[in-house]
């Protein structure tokens, strides 16, 4: 237990230190920066609420990545799946609300968003099962395609003519996802937490999850064991994209109520290192996502006040990945040495 906690904490600490050195080189005080981030992202009430709100889409994307990575599939196209699902909810919700109660609107929007995200992942799934084509490239290409496609949809068919900025029609605040108690936090965080826990349970405790993990560990052996690898691959893509899509729906139905052209938070690649760091464990992902959301919200505040642009978070993520791989490598070495 101590050892596995260390394997998570050491890369984080090393990344924060190395990132701090970069800040220092740019003439900024890293301690003041980190202090500000913690103050704004965790210790202030409004900051903490924003952190929890931000965690919802991050957690759903993380759940999607857990499914994919455990099944050995590099779904790096979650950003495209997230965006198009968000468009679907943003376009549909203002129309449905005219005729349906708000709870039904939200349920239908979520379902449609999930389906849209799933179908966006069909092409990479097809190319992977049919031709064995590397999904890293195809899913990334689908994301670049999806970013522009989302803009086309918002500017042309779903554009709100009453607004000068290209955006969809707006879902009234009263009809959005319900708030929790007296806070500004919407119910999406509950959906996200439940989704992560179910994902974790299904992947680790059910026969279906085990099958996916076998495919991930060794597709050839899975085939010999009589598993339908093709169908399981489609299932993996669909589940992974569907969860990311639910993230898009929750972000629109809970926070924005509308979607503007060129809105692309690009959470996907930022969540990748968290999922690795958590070793695909859903419980650990929750803690790490919270940590990361603090960093994001605090960092956004710091970019306005301290003049450190939020691009710094990208650098931190990259450092985190590198130190994570490095710790993994050293661990691997010491274990091999022990064996020998």
């Amino acid at each position: 237990m101590i050892f596995s906690t260390l394997r998570v904490v050491v890369p984080i600490v090393l990344a924060l230190v190395a990132g701090g050195l970069i800040l220092l080189a740019l003439g900024k005080d890293p301690l003041a920066y980190y202090d500000f981030v913690v103050q704004r992202g965790l210790l202030s009430w409004s900051g903490l609420q924003q952190t929890i709100i931000r965690s919802a889409p991050l957690l759903l994307i993380a759940a999607g990545l857990i499914v994919a990575f455990r099944a050995g599939i590099w779904n790096l196209g979650v950003d495209g799946q997230f965006l198009l699902a968000a468009v679907a909810s943003a376009a549909l919700a203002p129309l449905l609300i005219a005729a349906l109660p708000s709870w039904l609107t939200i349920v239908i929007c979520c379902a449609v968003s999930v389906l849209v995200a799933m179908s966006w992942s069909l092409v990479p799934a097809f190319l992977k099962t049919q031709y064995g084509l590397n999904e890293i490239i195809t899913t990334l290409m689908m994301t670049f395609l999806g970013i522009s496609f989302a803009n086309v949809l918002i500017k042309l068919p779903f554009n709100d003519p009453d607004n000068t900025v290209p955006q969809t029609m707006t879902l009234p605040v009263a009809d959005r996802l319900g708030r929790l108690f007296d806070t500004t936090i919407h119910g999406g965080i509950i959906i996200a937490l439940v989704a992560v826990l179910i994902t974790h349970f299904v992947m680790t405790r059910t026969a279906f999850g085990l099958r996916l993990q076998i495919v991930g560990a060794n597709p050839r052996a899975a085939k010999h064991a009589g598993l339908n690898v093709g169908r399981l691959t489609y299932a993996t893509f669909a589940l992974s994209a569907g969860l990311a899509g639910l993230g898009g729906a929750v972000e629109i139905l809970g926070v924005w109520g509308t979607m503007r052209a060129d809105w692309n938070p690009a959470y996907g690649l930022l969540v990748v290192p968290l999922v690795f760091l958590a070793r695909f464990n859903g419980i650990a992902v929750i803690a790490l996502t919270l940590f990361f959301a603090i960093l994001m919200i605090g960092g956004e505040s710091a970019s306005r006040r301290l003049g450190v642009p939020n691009f710094y978070v990208l650098v931190l993520v990259a450092l985190l990945l590198i130190f994570l791989a490095l710790v993994e490598y050293l661990d691997h070495l010491s274990r091999r040495r022990k064996k020998a």
């Binding site: 740019l26 290192p273 642009p309 710094y312 650098v315 990259a318 990945l321 590198i322 791989a325």
Partner: peptide
């Protein structure tokens, strides 16, 4: 080490670092 993890890291890192350097 894993070529894909490091590849992603280098791409994200270069994105962040160049944007940061350009800003300063």
């Amino acid at each position: 080490m894993n070529q894909i993890v490091i590849g992603i890291a280098l791409t994200i890192g270069a994105e962040g670092l160049t944007a940061l350097l350009h800003h300063f």
